[in-house]
């Protein structure tokens, strides 16, 4: 949630002149309805999202757009979350051994982040492209946070 907060502050203010560059990245909204256990699926999804978001920000380090300190904060947050989830998942993996299939959710998220990455590349990592990507990643986090909350409320094996 802390990360979501940072991402929100990252995407504001959104410059009007960037509106024309907005693109739909096709956030995979139904990935959690695949046949995997919901809780594990959410953890996997969050792990993947944290990792890819961290990866995007650290691969290109857009210091011309955000302050270095701020970027460091968000990168720290994302990497810590990623490491934490990784430990969680590894612990669970020890208990269940049938993890030989790449989950559909992971592939769907990879496709999504690949589209983001390609978009940045196409736009030559422009200011607007970064702003749009920041909004998109924030949207992705909010979506899954919301989803998790709804699941908790409905107590679907969570």
């Amino acid at each position: 949630k802390e990360n979501a907060r940072l991402l929100i502050s990252m995407s504001y203010p959104f410059p009007l002149r960037c509106l024309k560059d907005i693109k739909g990245f096709g956030l995979p909204q139904n990935i959690l309805s695949y046949s995997w256990p919901v809780e594990r699926n959410i953890k996997e999804a969050f792990y993947e999202i944290s990792m890819q978001a961290f990866s995007i920000f650290s691969r290109h380090s857009p210091i011309s757009i955000w302050k270095e300190e701020f970027l460091a904060q968000i990168k720290s947050g994302l990497s810590e979350q990623k490491e934490h989830l990784k430990r969680c998942l590894e612990e669970e993996k020890k208990q269940s051994k049938n993890m030989q299939v790449i989950q559909q959710s992971k592939l769907a998220l990879r496709r999504y982040f690949q589209r983001i990455e390609n978009y940045l590349k196409d736009k030559k990592y422009s200011y607007c492209a970064w702003k749009i990507v920041a909004v998109e990643i924030k949207r992705c986090f909010s979506y899954f946070l919301k989803f998790t909350e709804l699941l908790r409320e409905n107590q679907v094996s969570f």
């Binding site: 990792m51 961290f54 990866s55 691969r59 990623k82 690949q114 990455e117």
Partner: peptide
Amino acid sequence: DGTSIWDMDALS
């Protein structure tokens, strides 16, 4: 060069 099949796995 940024086109590898493992690019998105760099951190895993």
